[in-house]
Design a protein around this nucleic acid. Structure first.
Lengths: 228, 228
DNA sequence: GTAGCATTCAAACGAACGTATGAATAGCTC
DNA sequence: GAGCTATTCATACGTTCGTTTGAATGCTAC
């Protein structure tokens, strides 16, 4: 086995990635220590540096493992939709579902990450560490360009700046929704407890889609003309 | 001067709070070190523990200083609106503006925090540290109860669970919008550069309000009946 | 069986962390 | 100006951090 990514080490690598994914989600990048990660993964402390090189590289590996899968699927779905449309603009609902729906449906597929990664993703987009944001921006670049273009085409009467802002709002609403079933406790305390966890995720998608589409298609804002 | 909060120490306290506010925003709670904070504030390392007791207490002091101001204003505005309505339900747009608009307008008032605190607030709601979320939930409890109740009354046909979810979505969209003029770079790269920073904040409120209201008033989701 | 390689392991490194201590300094009252 | 208190300061403490090292281990191939 010449390739270090094969063989018996695969167990170790995967176990580290799984635990790191969960602990980064629970405690953040700085809050999750190497000793905690290697401890819960039952591997030696030095294993991370051996297999990945550094803590930064570990985080990137955690993300790449899932994001590759997710963003390729997003591009495939958009390709297919645009092929079917034969040059005509897509419906906004199709685009929003292709982007956000694909992500939430991915959470049901344990091979592709599951809920843990989804919550990690939601949390991480606001992580303060510089290298994380740069890394994510880079990983997302292609997908975002394509989806932005699709939205521009689907909403020809809406200024591009407005679409970008609303895309941003949609990202925020979604990140929050998935990052914090915890943070939701801040706003609910009990209100939703009756639904079990499975139902909650099943129903999150339609709920979110309604909200996002309502926001995306809302009347354009009127900037106060008297100002400045 | 018997009270440690008066006298010449006020300078030190305030300087620490100002710097801590900014550094917590830039690097997060764990990422901002005491030495960095005291260094940039030009005070002794021990000053924080003398004036506040601990790093946790410092963070709470940073938030309390601004949140008190913000949430009291939110309650005042809601009180006034409800008094004027004389028992009739408020309009959703009034409630959303009273909650989110008050916050964004506060950012223009430098006495009450300014943009730095606003961005800190946006970032912090997803901070992983347990004590932070507990603290914030506690600080927000009263205000959220009041606003939820107002929304329930304003939208009598919408199930409470849906309103709570949409409140959550609105919080997420707003946090993102203000947390990251940085994170926006992830989605824009250049698209919005033509607007200077002042205009951007002026125009954020109408943009956000349109989006939030569109989402809040969107048609209710239909949960797939075939599912489970 | 031994050479070569990938992997694991225990142990240690230096740096940075939050916190604590006790002496020095400044401002006020009497 | 003596005495008191509030504040500042330099310094050190004990931990924990991410990373490194060099020896041990297991596997494969010849």
């Amino acid at each position: 086995m010449k390739n270090p990514r094969d063989g018996q080490s695969a167990d170790t690598r995967e176990r580290i990635l799984d635990v790191a994914e969960r602990l980064f989600m629970e405690h953040g990048y700085e809050g999750a220590s190497m000793r905690q990660i290697t401890g819960e993964a039952s591997v030696n402390l030095a294993a991370v540096n051996y297999h990945f090189g550094s803590k930064e590289a570990l985080l990137q590996a955690v993300f790449r493992r899932r994001l590759a899968c997710l963003n390729e699927e997003r591009l495939r779905v958009l390709d297919r939709l645009e092929a079917e449309a034969k040059g005509r603009p897509l419906k906004p609902s199709q685009i929003v579902d292709a982007f956000f729906g694909t992500m939430l449906r991915m959470a049901q597929d344990e091979d592709c990450g599951g809920q843990i990664f989804l919550r990690l993703l939601g949390r991480t987009m606001t992580e303060p560490a510089e290298f994380i944001r740069t890394f994510l921006a880079q990983e997302y670049r292609t997908v975002l360009e394509r989806y932005k273009a699709a939205l521009f085409k689907a909403l020809p009467d809406v200024p591009h700046a407005e679409i970008v802002w609303r895309f941003h709002f949609m990202l925020g609403a979604t990140s929050y929704a998935i990052a914090g079933t915890d943070a939701l406790r801040l706003v609910t305390d009990w209100e939703i407890e009756e639904e079990d966890a499975v139902d909650r995720l099943d129903r999150l998608l339609p709920r979110l889609m309604s909200f996002l589409l309502g926001g995306l298609r809302a009347p354009l804002p009127e900037f106060g003309v008297g100002k400045k």
